[in-house]
Simulated scan of single mutants.
Amino acid sequence: MMTYLLVCLCGGLGATARFVLNTSIQQTWKRLFPLSTFVINVIATFCAGLAAAAYAQQVVPESTYLLFVTGFLGGFSTFSTAINEMVSLFRNRHFGMATFYLIATIVVPIICVTLGWLVGSTVH
């Protein structure tokens, strides 16, 4: 039961961090590209790769991995918002930007997870 509560707490902290970062970026970024969601998901996927490598090498215990990845990063990252932003771009006939964002939202996080894993695998 305690693990469930801690995952919820970490998820809340992740959501709060996402809100703060999202708000900060949106105050200065006034362009069509949804930079705040993109940056948040890039950070989250890189950190997920780091955490996965650390867990695979038994640097961190399963409980820490669970709290960080499922809890904090689960609350921090936001794939559903990215999809909603893509749909809005398409609906508003910004086809080029929507297509770019779609590709970037899929390709860049895969690269980030891989880089996170590589960086985490070299640290012992």
Rank of each mutant, 00 (worst) to 15 (best):
Q58D: 13
G49I: 02
Y4R: 10
A56T: 12
F90I: 07
R91D: 14
Q58Y: 09
R93I: 08
V107K: 07
L118P: 02
R93P: 07
I83F: 10
L9S: 13
G120Q: 01
S63I: 10
L73D: 05
A48V: 10
A82H: 01
T70A: 11
S24L: 13
V108Q: 04
R31H: 14
F46Q: 05
G75Q: 07
M2E: 12
V60T: 13
Q27D: 15
Y65D: 05
S80W: 06
F72Y: 07
A53R: 00
V87I: 04
L50H: 00
G116E: 00
M86Q: 11
K30F: 13
G12S: 04
A48F: 07
L73R: 00
T28A: 04
F90Q: 02
C8S: 12
A15Y: 07
P34I: 07
V113T: 09
T64L: 15
L21T: 00
C10N: 09
V20P: 12
R31Q: 15
N41M: 03
C8G: 14
F33L: 05
L102P: 06
C10P: 12
L13Q: 10
G116T: 01
T81W: 07
T105H: 02
L32Y: 10
L115E: 02
V108T: 09
G116W: 00
V60D: 02
M2T: 14
Q57Y: 12
T122G: 08
V7R: 02
N41P: 06
T16F: 10
P61W: 11
A51H: 03
G11H: 03
L5M: 11
L32H: 11
F79I: 06
V59C: 08
T23C: 08
S80N: 06
I43K: 02
F68C: 03
L118R: 02
A104T: 05
A15N: 08
M97W: 05
N92W: 10
S24W: 14
G11C: 07
M86I: 13
F46H: 06
V87L: 03
K30V: 10
V107P: 03
V42H: 14
H94W: 14
V39A: 03
S80F: 04
F72H: 06
P34V: 03
M86N: 15
F33R: 00
L89S: 01
L73K: 00
F76H: 04
V39F: 03
S88V: 14
W29H: 14
G12N: 06
T16G: 10
A104I: 08
V59D: 11
W29R: 11
N22L: 10
G96F: 08
V42M: 15
F72P: 00
I83W: 11
R18E: 02
R18Y: 05
M1V: 08
F72M: 09
A54R: 01
T16W: 12
Y65I: 06
W117G: 03
S121P: 01
T16H: 13
C47H: 04
V59I: 11
K30H: 15
A56V: 12
I106N: 06
V69P: 00
L9M: 15
L9Y: 14
T81K: 02
T114P: 09
